[in-house]
Amino acid sequence: MYDTPNSTEASVSQTHIKIAARGVQVHYGEKHALKDVDVDILDKTVTAFIGPSGCGKSTFLRCLNRMNDTVSVARVSGEILLDGEDIYDKRVDPVQLRAKVGMVFQKPNPFPKSIYDNVAYGPRIHGLTKSKAELDEIVETSLKKAALWNEVKDRLQETGTGLSGGQQQRLCIARAVATAPEVLLMDEPCSALDPIATAQVEELIDELRSTFSVVIVTHSMQQAARVSQKTAFFHLGNLVEYDATQTIFTNPKDPRTESYITGRIG
């Protein structure tokens, strides 16, 4: 229904490279926040970014949909290809890019609107629907995907800020899903949630993998181990190691990775 042109191509191969980053550097004013990062993010895969605070993992995530553009002192160099197209090319409109690469933030940030309008926000601004019935359907499927439908189906017109923290975060995920992105970026989506809500969101991430490529930044190594197939370890602005999650957690090649996952640094 709201399939994007790339999804047919993507379904051909499960290991198709969705995003390819080469030599990415980020400066925040004087600070060199990210040094020479090369990563290939696969389609229909959950990729986890782990590392101690200030290691550059969130910075790199925000490069992937050019959210760093809104920070005036940030300067990004290097090359990031989404389906082979440079997203930092002058011809690329960051607004269109962000419609394809959605984002869920650390703190739930529902708009001060009704639950329905929160989810319908993306489809409306991108003109994804022709009729009210179609929009209703998108709202319903998105809320179902975010495992929130049963809790809110009778109060869609109530304000989204009145939900509990975990419900708010799932609403934000539903909101991102409704825009039909190809990649979903999640910046510590569970840090403000209790264990039950965390479990629900993690389950959700696993389901979303069938449709999108998901990139998640997390402070919890258990969470990375539970939800991801690929893991990248960042340390002091460097990408130290990037491999299958299993390998990173059982057989890390770099001593820094080993120290971090065994709890000796970070």
Binding site: R98, G102, N109, K113, Y121, G122, I125, H126, C172, T179
Partner: peptide, 26 residues
């Protein structure tokens, strides 16, 4: 809050859409 604007930008809204549909209503 800036997080409200980020939420809107993150969904691919333009600056004026963000102001009209999120910031001003809030």
């Amino acid at each position: 809050p800036q997080s409200m604007r980020d939420g809107s930008y993150g969904l691919g809204a333009t600056k004026s859409e963000t102001i009209r549909k999120v910031v001003l209503p809030a």
